[in-house]
């Protein structure tokens, strides 16, 4: 199976008279883990929505395969009347490419996705019976069950407590190592971006101009102990200083 690359060329996006993205050029290699970083309102979430075709672009080009794309939102966005398992099964019911999947394979894949995020024992629970972290895990499982080649995440861990956030970051990184899909992760946290990504693209408002395009020099596998190493802290500091200057 091949992974797609993203090619953004002279992208412009305006909401009314407000230009959110101005002449953006960005290429993302297939199988890369890229973090889009920047302050609130700099246009990073808009880029994600444009990639997912949830917004029409004003001008320019975005080329990537629209099939096999999953998006994880800021909120878990689970359907309250469906159990965790039924939520994970949802893409099989509504995605035309997945609707041909046989019934037993659907269930097997959904259960495996829940297991991958450590929710195997909560499959029959409804969202209101899950904690914030568990809900986000279920949302992640729902995104992974489609075996996406492009996974877009819009500040998915922003509302979680630190411990859960750390745990989910490691889980996400490990899932990426396993599947090697292209990941675009939007965040406003430098530490989160450095811990997760191999490449960090910092944007600034107005116009989502690229302020910094940084290659993260850290081992492929990331564990909690990495957060206390000088190597990691140096990376955080480097980006921090370059942003300040």
């Amino acid at each position: 199976m091949t992974t797609e690359a993203i090619e953004i060329h002279r992208l412009n996006k305006s909401f009314g008279s407000r230009k959110v993205i101005e002449d953006l050029d960005l290429q993302i290699q297939a199988g890369a883990f890229v973090s889009l970083m920047g302050p609130s309102g700099c246009g990073k979430s808009t880029i994600l929505r444009l990639l997912a075709e949830l917004e029409p672009l004003s001008s320019g080009q975005i080329s990537h395969s629209k099939e096999n794309l999953s998006l994880v939102f800021q909120e878990a966005n689970l359907l309250a009347w469906r159990t965790a398992l039924e939520n994970v099964l949802l893409p099989f019911e509504i995605n035309p490419q997945l609707s041909v999947t046989p019934e037993d394979e659907r269930k097997e894949r959904a259960l495996r996705a829940l297991q991958q995020v450590g929710l195997q024992d909560a499959s029959s629970l409804f969202p209101h019976q899950l904690s914030g972290g568990m809900k986000m895990r279920a949302a992640l499982a729902r995104a992974l069950v489609t075996r996406p080649r492009l996974l877009l995440l819009d500040e998915p861990f922003a509302a979680l407590d630190e411990m859960t956030r750390f745990e989910l970051q490691i889980q996400l990184r490990n899932l990426w190592i396993q599947d090697k899909m292209t990941v675009v992760f939007v965040t406003h946290s430098i530490t989160e971006a450095v811990f997760l990504a191999d490449r960090i693209v910092c944007l600034k408002a107005p116009g989502a101009k690229i302020l910094l395009d940084h290659k993260v020099d850290l081992p492929i596998e990331r564990t909690n102990t990495l957060r206390t190493t000088s190597q990691y802290n140096q990376q955080v500091e480097t980006i921090s200083m370059r942003l300040r200057s």
């Binding site: 929505r49 075709e53 949830l54 999953s70 939102f73 966005n77 995605n95």
Partner: peptide, 16 residues
């Protein structure tokens, strides 16, 4: 956001 989820998964109007 829930409507977006259905849109990303290319759900039809009837499925939505």
């Amino acid at each position: 956001l829930q409507l977006d989820l259905f849109k990303v998964q290319q759900a039809s109007a009837l499925q939505t």
